[in-house]
């Protein structure tokens, strides 16, 4: 048998065995890598109530947080709000309801900050969006005993509506703002980190642009 014929047989065997080994041994979600990016903090003014009534009025505004990356499996946000009036003059406690929505428009987080009638100063709340995701896993799948990493990997594959690059939206609704005078301005800032999977177990780096 010629040398070339022997080589053909050898590499044919390698090709077949290698393909089979690759097919059977390959485990796609075995060791995904994530990368963490931070987006800059920037103040965003909530529109003030210019002529609202003393009580029962609501002011609201929306802060857009561009996260130009797909497969976001965790988003940690810190929303900080600072009332402008100090000392405050309110007839009732001011309540700020903070709602976070993903690019698909689904609500993924909601928390409230309250300032008593005489209370001033900045307050903040933290959102760990990954918890929201994992809490929403269908029962039929959630019966498995997954590690946190496995669960995130699974979530990355399942939450296809969150694979789109887009704008995460933080909406703030404030009831009972300042009453004397009939306006109160709240400064709001959003900061945080996003974790996502890009491709198959590939590490990507780089800052994302945009801010609140």
């Amino acid at each position: 048998m010629e040398t070339v014929d022997t080589l053909i047989i050898v590499f044919a065997v390698i090709a077949v065995v290698g393909s089979a080994a690759g097919a059977f041994l390959y485990d796609p979600p075995a060791s995904p890598k994530d990368f963490v990016v931070t987006f800059t903090e920037e103040e965003h003014d909530v529109a003030s109530e210019e002529s609202g009534s003393v009580s029962g009025s609501t002011i609201s505004d929306t802060v857009d947080v561009p996260v130009p990356m797909p497969n976001v499996t965790a988003l940690e946000l810190t929303v900080t709000m600072s009332p402008s009036n100090s000392p405050p003059v309110r007839a009732n406690p001011a309540n700020a309801v903070i709602i976070v929505k993903d690019p698909a428009g689904s609500e993924v987080g909601r928390k409230t900050i309250t300032w008593a009638s005489t209370e001033s100063g900045a307050k903040s709340v933290d959102f760990d969006i990954a918890q929201q995701y994992l809490a929403g896993l269908p029962d039929s799948v959630d019966t498995r005993n997954l590690t946190a990493e496995e669960a995130e990997t699974w979530a990355a594959g399942e939450f296809t509506n969150r694979t789109a690059t887009g704008i995460w939206r933080v909406t703030v609704q404030i009831s009972n703002p300042g009453t004397v005078p009939n306006e109160e301005t709240f400064a709001i800032s959003v900061s945080g980190t996003a974790t996502h999977y890009h491709g198959q177990a590939r590490l990507e780096t780089g800052p994302i642009s945009g801010a609140a």
């Binding site: 070339v4 590499f11 690759g22 590939r202």
Partner: peptide
């Protein structure tokens, strides 16, 4: 023809690992 078969097999075999592992 035989040369193409041999080198195709070698190149394919070398690419298997790239096809199954992104890193």
């Amino acid at each position: 023809k035989k040369a193409a078969l041999l080198m195709g097999l070698i190149a394919y075999s070398g690419g298997i690992i790239a096809a199954v592992d992104g890193e």
